[in-house]
Each structure stands twice: as C-alpha cells, then as structure tokens.
Design a protein around this nucleic acid. Structure first.
Length: 524
RNA sequence: GUCCCCGUAGCUCAAUUGGAUAGAGCAUCAGCCUUCGAAGCUGAGGGUUGCUGGUUCGAUCCCAGUCGGGGACACCA
C-alpha cells in the first residue's frame, strides 16, 4: 500500500524523492510526508505555502480515489488520510499473493554471498556464534524475499597454527601428556581424543577437524541454520590462489620485505599499521588467505559480499578493505556487519560457566535448554550493534513473559478462528469487505499492510530485528482486536468479511515467521 | 595510548535512519473469563534520552568534547 501511494505521489509531483512516514499519532493521518519542509529549504520558500501547493496538485491528480483527505500540519507536514475502500483493495492483494506477499524486487536479481559464523574448527560454538548465525541466516532469507539471490557460506579455517595446536592438544590428551603451550584443554579435547583412540583413523588431523566441524554443523542445524556451502581454506592454498594474490599485490607495488617477511602497505590505505602477508618461515598468513578468499568470492560472480563478524574482528575490517582496493577490487561491495557480544544471565545472575562441565557454556547447551524458536527469536530481537543481555530463564519460560509465545499464540488463535469458521477461504471471493467498519479493524488492516515495508527496511539496513519488533506490534493489535470484535457470529456476511481479515493476518504472520525461521504453530 | 560498539522508564529493549506529545514488554497498582484459546485484554503510575556545547524550522539520531561500560590493537585465526 505504501509503495502504491509513493508511486502515485511520484507521478503526481513528477519527482522520485518522496519519503512517506507512518505517524505515531492517528491525528496525523495514515501517512505523512515532509517533502514540503525539505523543498522549502532548497527553494527558500515558505514551507506551509509550498505544502498547500503540493496538496493541490495531489488532490487534482488523485480525483478522490485513494485519499479521504489531505491536511497540512505543523511546520509544513502533509498528512494523508487513506480511504477505507482503498485499504480494502490492498487487503485483497494479501490473499492473492499469499506466500509471496511482502516480497519485493529491491535486489533485482543481485547475486549476494553472505558469509557468517565461520568459527574456527578448534572448539565448540558459543552464544555469540549463535547470534551471528541467527542474524546471518535471517538476513539471507530476507534478501531472498527481496529479489536477491543469496548464497549462505561458512568459511572453515582448517589451516594454520591454531589447527596444529588443536591436533597437538588432542595427541597430548590421548597420551595423557600435558597440554602444549598455548594449546587447547577443554573437555571436548579429551572427548575427541577418546573417539580417535577408539576409531584409530589413518589421518588424525582430518579426523579431528571433521569431528569438530560435525559438532558445529549439528549445533547450527539444531538452530535450523543452513549453509549452501562450507568453504575450506586449504583449497585456496592447494590451488595456488594464495600465492597468486601475493604476487598480484607485489606487482601492484603494495608490498615490501622487512625482517625476512613480506608486508602489505595497509597503512597507506588508512589502516593503523602495515600487515604481514608471508611470514619469515615462508608460510602465508591468515590475512593473505582471507584476501584471496574475498577475491575468490568476486571471481565466483557475486555482486555483493556480506560478512557477519563478531566485534572481536572489527580491527580486521580496514586491512581487508585496503587489500581489496590494492588489487583493484570494489571494496565498497563488501559490507561487513559487526555483531556485538552476548552476555548470558539466569535471571539476574551472570552465566559464564557451564554447570555440567565448569567450562565456558556452549551454544549447544543453551539451544538444548531453551529450544530453537526462543533461541532464534531472542537472538534476533535486538539490533546487532547493541550489546545483548540474554536471560536463559526468561527465554525458557512458556508464559506470557516470553515474547515468542505471544506471537505464536496470536497465530494459533487466528488459525483456530478460521477453523471454527469452517468456510473455505477461496469461497470467500466476492465477500463485501465494506462491512469491516470498526476502528480496531482498520487498525489491524493497516498493520497487516505494513508488512512489505518492514521487509524492505530489513533488507535495506540488513537488520532483521526490525521484523521482530513488527511481529510484536502486529501480535498486540491482533490480541486487542480479538477482544473487541467477534469473528464467528450470526451475521454470516460480516463473519465472512472478518474471516478474510483473519486469513490475511495469518498469511502475514506466517510469511514473517518464515523469514525468521521461527515456527508458526496452528495449535499450542 | 589508538580504533570500534553501547549508554533511553526500576529491568530488558524500540524509536520507520533528522520529524510532530520518546514507545513496548517485564516489574508495580486497579479492573475483565457463561460467547471464536485468559499463553489474552483494558487502564494507571513511571523520562532533563550519561553530561556539555554545536549544526537547523526541528536532534535519542549528525558534529566536537567529556564521563561510564564492553571489545579490538600478533609473523593467532
């Protein structure tokens, strides 16, 4: 609906810089625009006079189709009141489009690769990984829904010092030897060691890495996070691509040698300092491989690169962008979302250690305890760049305290009403929506019709939490409506009209929860 | 010391990316079950948006500074 109105305004005013807001105060109409305020500044005119001019043009153009009335208010806002008949036309669109309602073509087929989690295979995932997982996965869903072609990828760092340390640590555990310096010593190391003893694999390194990776895969799968591809770092070394990247940087004059190592001049690109590409011992650094990896993403034909990283990697952003620039790749097409860390609580008590193992609590333990739906919902509830306090006790509650159930309950309620109504939805065609005259009905319709805009906001900002906020608002309107209006009633025509409203609401919740991958139960 | 993020109601978070009287949930208090699911609804109280300046018709949002919390500053990944 909003989109249609914007298009109408664009046509009427022959301009494309139309912005439309949804005012908080009903007195300010269904939509409002600050266009007169902005133009008045540019053209140095009186904003209210300009607003009146604009209002005249729009009214002439509209001929009473969409707008009930248009008002000028405050310093020069133009407030639009939408005709009920038009709202109901839009409601029909929800039923027609059904599962695709809310989708858009923002991406215009852009191939986008979204890389997320990419944890080292040296240990179990933690709650922070869960956050990047939920965010990355949902962004990918939203982008797919917005006309992009999203490719979900996990980069496996199966090369380097940390991996060697992991293997040495496992070996030590198998022989009851002390943990190597800087090695790993969690209980999972012993577990893998036991397993390796039992199976005595030919290639211990391969076995350990696979075991670690499988356990990460399992945890992610428990959260219903899926990847199109698991990209292994070693393939970049094996194919010689890493060497090629280093040669290319050398050729571009972006490197120099010092103390036996090859350095990249990242400082001249605005980074804090220069960075090593090839160590004194001749091994390329992780950084060198990562430049190659991102070059490889472009080579595979992706037009847009999105990475979801933990805040502990933020210092890494500048050097990667610098390196891409140095080899002539469009670094502005790399969008890195930095997610802040998650602090776990039980009630007001901070949780760091696992009760069972006495070590850092793992993602798996939390997912096992509270379940996939609450997990995803809570991790998606807040903006990625705000620090997050995650209360396990609250997420676990199956009561009204828990916002997940609030939404799911609204869905189950609607499903039950539709079921009780006992009328086939398709047979409701031709129903007179003009019978929906209650204020609460209009409120619900407007909220339902807002869905496509919310999807767009998420796609544009790459922040799925907007959708979660919307889901709570929508559920609140639904519950309120439920108490104000009865759907199942003796007036059969009215009932049919209200069933259509229920069905379109159901469709929106269903589409929305699919994007978040939170289940929508018909019964609870 | 340098860089990034955050600071909003007692608590956890929003605020359509510069819009009109800063909103929800929890907690507190007062109401609502003979009718489609009370896992719900209705209402009340609760604020100098950490602080100080600046930019403009307008700032929670942008800029400068300052205080507090978190994180990062490897020839680790």
């Amino acid at each position: 609906m909003r989109e249609y109105i914007i298009k109408t305004l664009q046509k009427a005013l022959k301009a494309d810089d139309i912005s439309l807001e949804s005012p908080k105060d009903l007195k300010h109409g269904d939509f409002s625009s600050n266009i007169a305020l902005i133009r008045a500044k540019q053209e140095k005119k009186n904003p209210r006079e300009l607003a009146a001019e604009i209002k005249g043009i729009i009214e002439k153009h509209d001929k009473g189709n969409i707008f009930e009335k248009i008002e000028i208010a405050g310093p020069g806002f133009i407030n639009f009141f939408i005709k009920n008949s038009f709202v109901k036309e839009c409601l029909k669109e929800v039923l027609e489009k059904n599962g695709t309602y809310g989708s858009n073509d923002l991406g215009k087929g852009t191939k986008v690769i979204i890389e997320f989690v990419s944890a080292n295979p040296t240990g179990p995932l933690h709650i922070g990984h869960g956050r990047w997982a939920a965010i990355g996965d949902s962004i990918a869903n939203i982008l797919d829904f917005s006309g992009y072609k999203a490719h979900r990828e996990f980069y496996v760092n199966n090369v380097g010092r940390q991996v060697n340390l992991l293997i040495e640590s496992v070996k030590a555990a198998m022989n009851n030897a002390p943990v190597p310096e800087d090695g790993y010593n969690g209980s999972y190391i012993k577990d893998v060691g036991e397993l390796a003893k039992k199976e005595s694999p030919k290639d211990l390194k391969k076995f350990v890495l696979n075991t670690m990776l499988d356990s990460q895969k399992q945890t992610l799968s428990d959260m219903q996070v899926c990847f199109d591809e698991w990209f292994f770092e070693n393939t970049l070394h094996d194919s010689g691509e890493v060497k090629k990247t280093i040669e290319l940087l050398k050729k571009k004059g972006a490197t120099y040698e010092k103390e036996g190592a090859v350095w990249f001049r990242s400082e001249s690109f605005g980074d804090d300092k220069d960075r090593v590409l090839v160590r004194e011992n001749g091994d390329p650094t992780y950084f060198a491989a990562d430049i190659t990896y991102h070059a490889n993403k472009f080579k595979r034909g992706f037009d847009l690169l999105i990475n979801v990283w933990g805040t502990d990697h933020h210092g890494y952003v500048k050097r990667l962008q610098s390196a891409l620039e140095a080899i002539g790749l469009p670094s502005h097409k790399l969008d890195i979302i930095i997610g802040q860390l998650v602090a776990l609580y039980r009630g007001s008590e901070p949780v760091r250690m696992s009760k069972r193992t006495g070590e850092m609590i793992t993602l798996k333990e939390v997912v096992d305890e509270i379940g996939k739906d609450a997990m995803r919902f809570f991790l998606l509830m807040t903006s990625a760049d705000s620090h997050m306090d995650f209360d396990i006790e609250l997420a676990k509650k199956q009561t009204l305290d828990n916002p997940v159930y609030y939404i799911q309950y609204a869905y189950a309620r609607i499903c039950n009403i539709i079921k009780t109504g006992g009328i086939d939805i398709p047979s409701l065609k031709g129903t007179d929506l003009g019978l929906l005259v209650e204020e609460s009905e209009r409120e619900l319709m407007m909220k339902v019709l807002d869905f496509p805009e919310e999807v767009k906001i998420c796609a544009k900002t790459m922040q799925p939490h907007h959708l979660v906020r919307y889901s709570r608002e929508l559920a609140a309107v639904i519950h309120s409506y439920y108490h104000k209006c009865r759907v199942i009633c003796d007036d059969r025509e009215l009932m049919k009209a209200r069933l259509i409203l229920m069905e379109s609401t159901r469709i929106v919740i269903s589409n929305m929860l699919k994007l978040l991958k939170v289940s929508a139960p018909e019964r609870m």
